[in-house]
Design a protein around this nucleic acid. Structure first.
Length: 272
DNA sequence: GTCCATGTTCTTTA
DNA sequence: CTAAAGAACATGGA
């Protein structure tokens, strides 16, 4: 479900309901969804107010009035949705956060994640390094070129590496490479400065367009109000193996790279 | 039954 | 030593 555009859309749809609200009841239906193990989330959150919510890479970070923080990672199938107080949680709902605001009606945040690859991680006062690389929208051509020059790995693997560029996943890596006309197997250190600059522009263009369309809804993804994204309709290569390239009609190819399905146009994306 | 899935991390192999 | 490949996690849909 969640790459940068989807996670940002969730944050945007959560913001007006949750910033300034206070936790009035915290229910952990599945305690092992919360890390570190043994974290007493109800004790830590009840009575606290949310001062801000923001996205970093694919993580949703909540900051409290105590300056303590926690994050939600949606893994592959996670959902964060808003519901009226007292709504029965659907199957695979692991945490329910009820919040009240002086100016808005009370509401519940439900965290649901069938595959449980996601987590709610208590950060507390920790302000240490997060180990994540550049935000794609803040990436500069020279920084990207410098990073690429240090590696021989396939550029697709590089784009999936959160320690290099943080926030892209399988969909937006493939779409960015198509937009940039780069073959996914191209060794990073064989990418020219011009190609790197183009890739930098294309990553941003793809992400901005996906944000405008509120992300890609394939199976699970919805925003906090249950709304689906529309960017899946505009995918050029992702999930289109065997179908004609929208630009040149050549059948889209599918290979496996870094254990992930990788789709590209063999004609539009110059050979490695 | 089979294969596949928007993610991350650990282990094994080369 | 490094990097790539593979497996693992858990569930559901085609």
């Amino acid at each position: 479900m969640p790459e940068l555009p989807e996670v940002q859309t969730v944050v945007n749809s959560l913001l007006p309901h949750v910033v300034g609200a206070r936790f009035i009841r915290v229910t952990t239906l599945r305690p092992d969804f919360i890390v570190p193990p043994g974290t007493d989330l109800p004790a830590l959150l009840t009575g606290r107010t949310v001062t801000s919510i923001h996205r970093r890479a694919k993580r949703i970070i909540f900051t409290l009035d105590t300056h303590q923080r926690f994050l939600i990672h949606l893994g592959m199938t996670g959902r964060v949705t808003l519901h009226p107080v007292g709504s029965p949680p659907v199957r695979h709902t692991h945490v329910v956060l009820a919040v009240a605001s002086p100016v808005r009606k009370s509401i519940e945040i439900h965290l649901c994640d069938p595959r449980r690859f996601g987590e709610l991680r208590w950060l507390g006062d920790d302000t240490g390094e997060d180990g994540l690389g550049y935000e794609p929208l803040a990436l500069r051509p020279r920084a990207l070129a410098a990073l690429l020059a240090t590696s021989r790995r396939p550029v697709k693997s590089f784009l999936l590496d959160q320690a290099a560029v943080a926030g892209l996943g399988n969909i937006y890596a493939d779409e960015s490479l198509f937009a940039a006309g780069l073959h996914p197997l191209t060794p990073c250190n064989r990418i020219t400065r011009d190609q790197a600059a183009r890739l930098c522009r294309c990553i941003k263009a793809v992400i901005r367009k996906a944000l405008y369309h509120r992300g890609s809804s394939l199976r699970d993804y919805v925003d906090a109000e249950g709304g689906k994204g529309a960017f899946q309709k505009l995918h050029q290569v992702y999930g289109r193996a065997g179908k004609p390239c929208r630009r040149c009609r050549t059948p889209i190819e599918r290979i496996v790279l870094s254990g992930r399905s990788t789709c590209f146009c063999p004609k539009c994306q110059s050979a490695a």
